[in-house]
């Protein structure tokens, strides 16, 4: 069976600087891949390439068997129009470090916006589904609150519910707990664990090593735009083979 995500020879540049320098990855459907690495190593950029929020400069990338962002004809890649890219993005949910909730909408409105606008789900039906999702992340009582009235942990759980409302096949998490006060991290990680247990394919950039050990099927360590080391989380964290991994872990722990 095809992996949910397949990446081959991925390169990405910002101007002169090469941020990704040849990444090869497979993420099997239903598995959880955790990504660690120092700041600036290209973790966020990698996730942004997977749903084509960033254009790539080399290599190929497939989600669910479909080439992302381009059409291949006669050995050449043609960038797809925004309309088709948007269609592909529906299949991929994304959760950001800064939550990025729509500030002028309530929690409920945040969640139903894309299903109603993009998938043309009837509002009544979308609302019912949104309430189920809010219940799942433990926030049914706060559906009428605006983001500014919610704690960081609550905002991030709404953001997760918002992504899930599009019924994605894959969820990307970019440091979902890094902006949170320590006592709020647990509630978000609990929602993510629950999601992993339900069989969602997930790629998670995180510094929560305990989470990676418990939930991750695979862990990769990135540095300077390359995957330096990969393997079962227990092994990479317990007995890192590469010096750079060891240095990084000794600094984080």
């Amino acid at each position: 069976m095809d992996p949910m995500v397949r990446i081959r020879g991925l390169h990405k540049r910002y101007g002169e600087t090469e941020v990704l320098r040849g990444i090869d990855l497979d993420v099997p459907a239903g598995s959880v891949m955790c990504i660690i690495g120092p700041s600036g190593s290209g973790k966020s950029t990698l996730l942004s390439c997977i749903n084509h929020l960033e254009r790539i400069d080399g290599g190929r990338l497939w989600v669910g068997g479909d080439l992302v962002g381009y059409r291949e004809r006669n050995g050449r890649l043609y960038e797809l129009p925004e309309r088709q890219v948007a269609g592909m993005r529906q299949k991929v949910g994304m959760v950001f470090q800064q939550f990025n909730l729509f500030q002028h909408m309530t929690a409920l409105q945040n969640i139903i916006e894309a299903p109603v606008q993009v998938k043309r789900v009837r509002p009544a039906q979308a609302r019912q589904r949104a309430m189920e999702l809010l219940d799942r992340v433990g926030l049914a009582a706060k559906h009428a609150m605006f983001p500014a009235q919610l704690s960081g942990g609550e905002q991030q759980r709404v953001a997760i519910a918002r992504a899930l409302a599009m019924d994605p096949q894959l969820m990307l998490f970019d440091e979902p707990t890094s902006a949170l006060d320590a006592e709020l991290v647990g509630e978000v990680l609990a929602v993510m664990k629950d999601l992993a247990r339900s069989g969602m394919t997930m790629m998670v950039v995180t510094h929560e090593l305990a989470f990676a050990r418990e939930v991750g099927d695979e862990l990769i360590f990135m540095d300077a735009g390359l995957v330096i080391e990969r393997g079962a989380p227990r092994e990479v964290l317990g007995a890192p083979k590469e010096r750079r991994t060891r240095d990084f872990l000794s600094r984080v722990l």
Partner: peptide, 18 residues
């Protein structure tokens, strides 16, 4: 308007005009 919200909307599959 913080650019992150535009990224979030794009990631949800919304098109530029909406």
């Amino acid at each position: 308007v913080p650019h992150g919200q535009t990224r979030a909307a794009k990631a949800l599959g919304m098109r530029p005009m909406p």
